[in-house]
């Protein structure tokens, strides 16, 4: 039997190149905000949208989101919400932890006001996340209203993957690319939600616990992967230590204080080091 090694090697190299190239670009990049050498040719916004969609399904976050939303679908079923209601909540809220809070609060009979307050407090994080992400997405000619969809898609998954993927996307295509990425992640969440909603009776508690554990585990390693600057690494480490202390101490608005204290201390150390050099 005769195998054509050259054709096979070529195919293999092109697949390997596609998979490895974005990561190499990431590793060799010293500055997060630099947009030097965009290496993906995207002739139209539509092609950029589909490139983003494809990137979403190649991301490890597809598995994370399917797993997380299996947990959320099962939770919603247990509390008697309809499947269409949970799926609408995924489209409208688009934040795993906030949806868990909302479903369990409403399901256990909390008032609408209490629930809105709890969801609002967990959503505070979106403000600094959006502020930090948008300068990477927008170009000189981007209109503010074009940024509303990428802002709505901003959640932990999209945030960390955007910092990894967007620098290799041409600047004028980044809005469309981000929308593709967001839609791709949302679709995978819907897949998980439907599975969880209908499989809830057959899911052992240990497995649903494992699904709920995907959120902290994936947030930790993906944030650590993106944290190259000293300020980001310190903020991550300090935030992990300060938040449980604030909760045990019974301080209200613990997430907000964690962000301000840990983020500012981390930034201060970054400034001090910069001044010394």
């Amino acid at each position: 039997m005769k195998v054509r090694p050259s054709a096979f090697a070529g195919l293999h190299a092109s697949i390997a190149g596609r998979l490895i190239a974005p990561r190499c670009a990431l590793w060799n990049r010293s500055d997060m905000s630099s947009d030097a050498a965009p290496d993906i040719p995207l002739p139209s916004p539509l092609s950029a949208f589909f490139a983003g969609l494809r990137a979403a399904f190649l991301s490890v976050f597809v598995m994370v989101l399917i797993g997380t939303y299996i947990g959320i679908g099962a939770l919603a079923h247990d509390y008697g919400f309809s499947l269409s209601w949970v799926m609408a909540s995924t489209v409208l809220v688009w934040a795993g932890p906030a949806q868990v809070i909302m479903i369990s609060a409403l399901g256990t009979g909390a008032t609408a006001f209490e629930t809105a307050l709890a969801v609002g407090l967990s959503g505070v994080r979106f403000m600094p996340m959006v502020v930090a992400l948008l300068p990477l997405i927008r170009g000189p000619k981007t209109r503010t209203r074009d940024l509303l969809m990428p802002a709505h898609f901003t959640a932990a998954s999209m945030w960390v993957e955007s910092f990894r993927l967007l620098p290799s996307v041409p600047r004028e295509r980044r809005v469309a690319y981000s929308n593709g990425l967001g839609i791709g992640f949302m679709l995978s969440a819907h897949i998980g939600c439907v599975i969880g909603y209908y499989a809830t009776a057959s899911l052992p508690p240990l497995l649903t616990a494992a699904m709920l554990f995907l959120t902290p585990m994936s947030f930790l390693v993906s944030t650590a992967r993106n944290a190259r600057a000293l300020a980001d690494r310190l903020a991550l480490a300090l935030g992990l230590m300060i938040c449980p202390l604030l909760v045990y101490a019974g301080v209200g608005l613990d997430l907000l204080w964690t962000g301000l204290i840990a983020g500012t201390v981390a930034y201060g150390i970054h400034r001090l080091r910069g001044a010394r050099q």
Partner: peptide, 12 residues
């Protein structure tokens, strides 16, 4: 970005 990262750490 440091504040956003710290809030994510808080969620974790």
């Amino acid at each position: 970005r440091a504040v956003a990262t710290a809030v994510l750490a808080g969620v974790i």
